[in-house]
């Protein structure tokens, strides 16, 4: 019972944060110089009268709080409006973009965390200079090399020099680039955490019981490191949303990132707001799930 209340409380906190993010985005969009009508006007050569008429029909002439209230009211009913530029329902556009981003994020996350776990566990089980050097290299790589640089380099190597892969549309290269970046962010902390976990008194007890090294690793050492794995995973997942934006643009993947970026350039407010809302809610969901898993793993938190 207390468990459920605690999870609900953290969910509520998260949703409040999400609402705040969305509100902030709404007002920030309007602070940017030039609105959607200006952009369309420059492109399409609209007359001043046409522009005024368009603003009125879109409701852009009303006060900002009023506009936000209108938008929020509709959004709460699941209606995110129509794209101003493409004149298509926003929901439909998001629905086509979301799977691309979700696939990219999920694959890079699994690859990244998997790689980090593999390296950290191997280095703990069989300490060696080479493994530690590899871990240091991956860590330094992720700090020093931005993903967009690595992405460009990867295009150069795989597609242009080796001619292996299609540059456009293939997920493999972006997953590799983002995954290594993610692994680098967490592998060092994981390694340290495991190094300390094997020294814990209850692990010594397990050794005194005469258990096999595998049993000790999976039943006694890993659970002790799980809270950190979960916390780091949450961070990485959060960062993926931002990370996928540049990768999608670079590799021309028609995902949420590309959609949002184009919408920002075109001041296509409904898409920006819908995308930001989606991302904020996804982050809240991730946090809640991590929190729940944390409670599941560690009985002391219940």
């Amino acid at each position: 019972m207390a468990r459920i209340v605690a999870v609900l409380a953290s969910l509520l906190r998260g949703l409040l944060q999400a609402a705040f993010i969305v509100m902030l985005t709404f007002f920030l969009c309007r602070v940017m110089p030039g609105d959607v009508v200006d952009v369309l006007g420059l492109e399409g050569g609209l007359t001043v009268e046409q522009q005024v008429e368009m603003r009125r029909s879109l409701g852009l002439d009303q006060s900002l709080p009023r506009q936000f209230a209108d938008w929020a009211g509709q959004a709460l009913h699941g209606d995110f409006g129509r794209s101003i530029r493409f004149d298509r329902p926003v929901g439909e556009m998001l629905a086509t973009a979301l799977p691309v981003t979700a696939k990219l994020a999920a694959l890079s996350f699994c690859f990244g965390i998997g790689l980090a776990l593999l390296l950290a566990i191997a280095a703990t089980a069989r300490p060696s200079r080479w493994l530690d050097a590899t871990i240091d290299f991956v860590n330094t790589w992720s700090i020093a090399v931005p993903t967009f640089c690595a992405g460009v380099a990867a295009i150069l190597v795989f597609s242009i020099w080796l001619g292996w892969l299609p540059v456009i549309g293939g997920l493999l290269v972006p997953v590799l680039v983002i995954g290594v970046d993610n692994a680098g962010q967490v592998v060092k902390s994981l390694r340290e955490e495991l190094r300390e976990a094997v020294m814990l008194p209850h692990v010594r007890t397990a050794r005194a019981k005469g258990l096999s090294p595998w049993r000790i690793a999976f039943a006694h050492v890993l659970p002790a490191a799980m809270p950190i794995v979960l916390a780091l995973s949450g961070l990485v997942l959060g960062g993926l949303v931002a990370g996928s934006l540049t990768m999608e643009v670079l590799f021309a993947l028609p995902g949420l990132g590309s959609l949002t970026l184009n919408a920002i350039h075109g001041r296509d407010y409904p898409i920006i707001l819908a995308a930001v809302t989606l991302i904020a809610v996804a982050l809240v969901a991730i946090n809640t799930i991590v929190d729940m898993l944390h409670r599941l793993v560690d009985p002391r938190l219940a």
Binding site: L200, P201, H202, R204, T205, A206, A219, H220, P223, A224, M226, V297, D298, P299, R300
Partner: peptide, 10 residues
């Protein structure tokens, strides 16, 4: 120290 010598997750 029995508190830290028992596995807290089991």
């Amino acid at each position: 120290d029995p508190m830290s010598c028992l596995n807290p997750f089991m």
